[in-house]
Nucleic acid binder design. Sequence first.
DNA 1: GATAGTACTAACCTTTTTGTGTGTATGATA
DNA 2: TATCATACACACAAAAAGGTTAGTACTATC
Lengths: 111, 111
Amino acid sequence: MIEKVYVTNRCPIRTTLELTGGKWKLLILSQLFQKSLRLSELKASIPDISEKMLIQELKTLVESGMVLRTNYGEVPPRVVYSLTRVGEATKPLIAAMKDFAEAYEQQLKER
Amino acid sequence: MIEKVYVTNRCPIRTTLELTGGKWKLLILSQLFQKSLRLSELKASIPDISEKMLIQELKTLVESGMVLRTNYGEVPPRVVYSLTRVGEATKPLIAAMKDFAEAYEQQLKER
DNA sequence: GATAGTACTAACCTTTTTGTGTGTATGATA
DNA sequence: TATCATACACACAAAAAGGTTAGTACTATC
């Protein structure tokens, strides 16, 4: 039994939406769950994201402390993205989405 | 340890975003966790939503099978919104958001 | 007869989000 | 010298999301 959610400017739902909302952020985070990835690897694992969107979203994820950007300072550039501790904290969120999606598909069949 | 998420047109993340994405849907659902509510009650519990948005979002939630709309056919109209079984399935999702938001606030303090 | 309450609908407009295309620095390679 | 690869930046355009305002149907109350 879940506690009542009071809707305020800074309630848990809004905080989470602010950090992970939108079409791409959770997809990107999910791809970093197993290991750090380079831009090109991320792009390959999210087939239909544009490079601009990927870079743009990565930037905000870095700014909000969810993703760590490591620049090896080489030429040609090598930059690696990985999850911070807070970024890791989205794992249960995505796990919950998996369960939910499954429940949803399930009841589609039932009718 | 969460399983790898393969990004496809119908992966769990995208399915969930399609059903619950946007600024309002999860807020509305969360207000129906304890009991069915009328439009006016919903509006009061989500202070800054406009009536149009509320009605519009409720409509899509009904269409996607997350919310049940019960019209008592009285005059003046009395209509009550409640969660369906699938709607209930968003509870763990919101619980996960609570945990995440908490973890996020926590680490803000730590620095 | 005017006003109020409820649950909407419709038209219109603004803001936010997402997408496309092009340009840049650097060194290595052909 | 031209081309490639990487990780971006920037300008602009399109699309999606959200917001504002006004209006409807019905009945009851003042």
